[in-house]
Nucleic acid binder design. Structure first.
Lengths: 175, 175
DNA sequence: AGGGCATGGGCGACTTTTCACCTAGCAGAC
DNA sequence: GTCTGCTAGGTGAAAAGTCGCCCATGCCCT
């Protein structure tokens, strides 16, 4: 399961609670993956029962105790194995293209509206990615780890830009 | 469910069996969606029970009888509603970027290998898309329906190309 | 005579994912 | 005073999707 690997990856950076993980998914990971709260907690307990992580309860003042999850040596090995293992090519899933594929029966202006809606989404995404990118620390980018994390954001940017240029072409030549 | 819409879309072009649908998913739809055989059959019976499609058993010589599924008027309405309805923006899911994000701990040559593997995949995909694209009929492209179907393939091509240029950059600047 | 392959349809078990709901304390706004 | 939101950690149920297996026929190849 990919989610288990991603969580293991985050735990390898520092111990975290399910709550912390959710916040990371919503911020730094969000441009290439996201996960439901329930799923995170369930996967976390799976990691513990399979020996890839351990829990430590840390009491806090004025707040509920933190169930801090720590990666184990076995967990680090599993993570390493995943990182260096063969690529699992997953099938493409673009629901929007499903609409385009079957949009031949629509009126011309309905198709134009569909493309415009997609453009609005893409432009919004583009702006948010660029903002995130601009906030990155230059010093961190010089290091391999920071460079690679930024590269995943760049991936998003490059792809949104190609989406926009595709939209230009499709709109421009629509018969 | 998106799968139900896509099946409805295919049935709107012509009546089909589950088997026919699977073949369409594996060929023309494959570049933006795919579905499991079991899932197709299940969704098909859902469509029938919800009145969006009907079944007609067509006996054949030397072959098992075809369970031909026909779209109903209600099915066409549902399809239309989906096509013109608001976009359902789905979260990004790129397992490969998960690896890149956590690849900071790897040796430099392991990272290079990871990127090279991705490049090989992308190049293979690119070649297959270009082949498919070259086989398209020029006459069909002039019509709106054919133009839009081709556009979904172009989408795949544009995105694979941007993937390759991203790989160039990441490999070239890797600290 | 046997094996593989294409046509056609399907079941059962499983995992993954989503959705809604629940607990509980504390802070700040209205 | 109540209401929203944040901290924290869940549960239960349903939907969606995957995996392995099953049935039948008939063709071609060796």
């Amino acid at each position: 399961m990919i989610l288990a690997r991603l969580i293991l990856g985050l735990l390898s950076l520092s111990p975290m609670t399910g709550y912390d993980l959710k916040k990371h998914f919503d911020s730094s990971i969000n441009h290439f993956w996201n996960a439901d709260k329930a799923q995170i907690y369930r996967t976390l307990s799976q990691l513990v029962t399979s020996g890839l992580a351990t829990v430590r309860t840390v009491p806090q003042e004025n707040y509920p105790a933190r169930q801090e999850h720590h990666i184990t040596a076995a967990g680090r090995t599993a993570l390493q194995d995943w990182l260096t293992g063969g690529l699992d090519r997953q099938p493409a899933r673009e629901p929007f293209l499903g609409r385009i594929f079957f949009a031949g029966g629509l009126e011309r202006d309905e198709i134009v509206a569909l493309l415009a809606a997609r453009r609005a989404e893409a432009e919004e995404l583009h702006a948010s990615y660029r903002t995130l990118r601009a906030e990155l620390d230059d010093a961190a980018l010089a290091e391999r780890r920071g460079y690679l994390m930024a590269a995943t954001l760049d991936h998003g940017i490059v792809h949104v830009e190609s989406e926009l240029s595709w939209l230009d072409r499709v709109e421009g030549n629509l018969p």
